[in-house]
């Protein structure tokens, strides 16, 4: 596969959220504001790309019995770097994201891509796959967050769009709304992109 194919595949055709149904936990928690989603998405992309690269580079040396522990350790290390970086350089955002940055470690996307791709492919391809999966995930997050923030707060990225006349939809601020928005999003994608027939 060409590099471009790998990217398109991981970002769209085999998108982690709408096709593989991974990474749902964080999709629900951080999508109340678009800014949070963007930062979370970038954090995941960064950790995923680097973790994929490292795991792939070590794949010939890693013994089978400790494979999962090694993957977990490497993923955890990169996520902690992201967490510490945010705390030091963007403290306000770090407070907003709070415990959810730590939950990137158990974000099934990272482990899933490590097992499915990085363990069998070379480092450069794995890196591109990581970037693609991460950006695909970010795309889904931003879409959900756009709807939640617009109807829940009347703003997008903090910029007020709807004025004071708009009565905020409280359900959009609560997490369960993300379930419904994601379900409808998957429905539309299944019909239009994959053209699933009855």
């Amino acid at each position: 596969m060409t590099k471009k194919d790998i990217f398109i595949n991981s970002a769209f055709r085999e998108n982690s959220v709408w096709k593989q149904i991974l990474g749902i936990c964080s999709s629900l928690a951080v999508t109340n504001l678009m800014l949070n989603s963007l930062i979370m998405g970038l954090g995941v992309t960064f950790s995923l790309a680097l973790a994929n690269f490292t795991i792939s580079a070590l794949r010939t040396h890693t013994p089978r019995s400790v494979r999962m522990m090694v993957q977990t350790l490497i993923i955890a290390a990169y996520v902690i770097i992201v967490d510490v970086f945010l705390q030091a350089n963007m403290p306000a955002i770090s407070k907003q994201l709070g415990p959810y940055v730590g939950l990137i470690i158990t974000n099934c996307i990272l482990m899933g891509r490590a097992e499915a791709f990085a363990a069998q492919n070379n480092p450069i391809d794995s890196f591109i796959d990581g970037i693609g999966s991460g950006l695909g995930y970010t795309l889904v997050l931003l879409t959900i967050a756009a709807i939640r923030e617009l109807f829940g707060f009347g703003s997008l990225f903090g910029i007020q769009i709807l004025g004071d006349w708009w009565i905020r939809w409280s359900i959009m601020v609560m997490a369960p709304s993300a379930f419904f928005i994601l379900a409808i999003f998957i429905w539309i994608i299944n019909n239009k992109y994959y053209k699933v027939k009855a």
Binding site: L58, H61, T62, P63, S65, V66, M69, V70, L73, I74, A77, I80, I81, V84
Partner: peptide, 22 residues
């Protein structure tokens, strides 16, 4: 004994990097 040694080495390397960064 290789898996154990491997785990130890990886752990030391990554924890070391983290400690410095932190």
């Amino acid at each position: 004994v290789y898996p154990v040694v491997f785990m130890l080495v990886i752990t030391v390397v990554f924890v070391g990097v983290l400690a410095v960064f932190y």
